[in-house]
Design a protein around this nucleic acid. Structure first.
Lengths: 197, 197
DNA sequence: ACCTGAACACCGTTCAAGT
DNA sequence: ACCTGAACACCGTTCAAGT
């Protein structure tokens, strides 16, 4: 362990790592730049060199979230079967699993608070992730297991259903017993809405 | 206009009204109890008599949001047709319309930050609202326009799809052109997943 | 280029004291 | 019961100055 050299080494990464831990353990409200600086062993003004503002750090945090979400879903496809139903099932469980395991982060990722410019960068990364879903559906169409139609237009309702369930779960708006049957039913309903005539 | 009597008259209501205006005009990040107190012509410590903490005020704000959402959806049913398709269409547009018109408030309503106790009160009010949707679907089942099954289990995927689309819209995560066809497609997909075999 | 130290204007919350 | 005034410990952000 270096004993606090003048240059930290990789302050931006250290700040983000610390921020994510605080987010997970104590929620978004407990995130303070000064505390982050203290925990990283650096002066209160140091973070501003790398994140011009607190919101900029939050935006960066959300971005890493989208990246990890994309990886999580990609991983779910590795061990999934071939059929559309199996692949959708795996992706849906991966998404909701990520949401539950990273509730505060998901909140941040889909909050309306992002700066206009950051929203664009986020949109780009979110797009990379949504391509997973698009590929899955496109495959299903080729296999004849998903109805025809423009890819994005078939995909959006699927996306909405999965994200909606994840968000409702995370925000605690689901009835007690919904945890049991909820996800299964959502997946079934997506399959129903996707299947060809 | 009374010239600032010692007792405000109805400080809690005044604070909530001011808070909602600030929320709409400048977002959740700009909400400060001290500023609220200033704008209401009251001392910095006054709000604490009515909202023990800032989070308590935010919870109360979210609660009024759910109440207004319930009213908005109820109103949409007044002028809607009789069929399930027409009534779902009206409710969906009312929901998404509310979401777009009250983006920051919706964010607050479905954020994961609510205190454990407040979540229960919120859940109760949210439940009152979801009953609108349940009634709608129950009606559809009676008319033979919606597939059979336990009401909550048929309703949850519908709820997820509508909320998911509203949330994606509000958080700016939708592709540019999705505004045009998005809602129509989501409604169509919900109808497809609801219809009897 | 990267960071410190000190400063500025602001917070949320508490608590004695006033009406 | 409801509110004020003053205080406390904390913020985010800026900027000269140091390495």
């Amino acid at each position: 362990m270096t004993n606090r050299p003048y240059h930290h080494g990789d302050l931006p990464t250290a700040l983000l790592a610390q921020a994510e831990q605080t987010l997970r353990e104590r929620g978004a409200g407990a995130l303070s730049l000064r505390e982050l600086a203290r925990d990283t062993g650096v002066s209160p003004a140091a973070p501003s060199r790398h994140f011009k503002t607190k919101q900029a750090l939050l935006d960066a945090l959300a971005l890493t979230g989208f990246e990890r979400l994309a990886e999580t879903i990609a991983a779910s496809q590795e061990s999934a079967g071939e059929s559309f139903a199996e692949r959708l099932d795996a992706a849906a469980r991966a998404y909701v699993g990520f949401a539950v395991a990273n509730a505060a982060l998901l909140d941040l990722m889909f909050s309306a608070k992002h700066s206009p410019e950051a929203s664009q960068a986020l949109g780009a990364t979110a797009h990379r992730w949504s391509e997973q879903l698009l590929g899955l559906i496109s495959d299903g169409q080729r296999r004849g297991e998903v109805r025809e139609g423009p890819l994005e237009r078939v995909a959006l309702p699927v996306f909405a259903a999965l994200h909606g369930f994840a968000d409702l779960t995370v925000s605690g708006m689901l009835p007690e017993n919904a945890a049991g049957y909820g996800l299964d039913d959502v997946i079934a309903s997506v399959l129903r809405q996707c299947r060809p005539e």
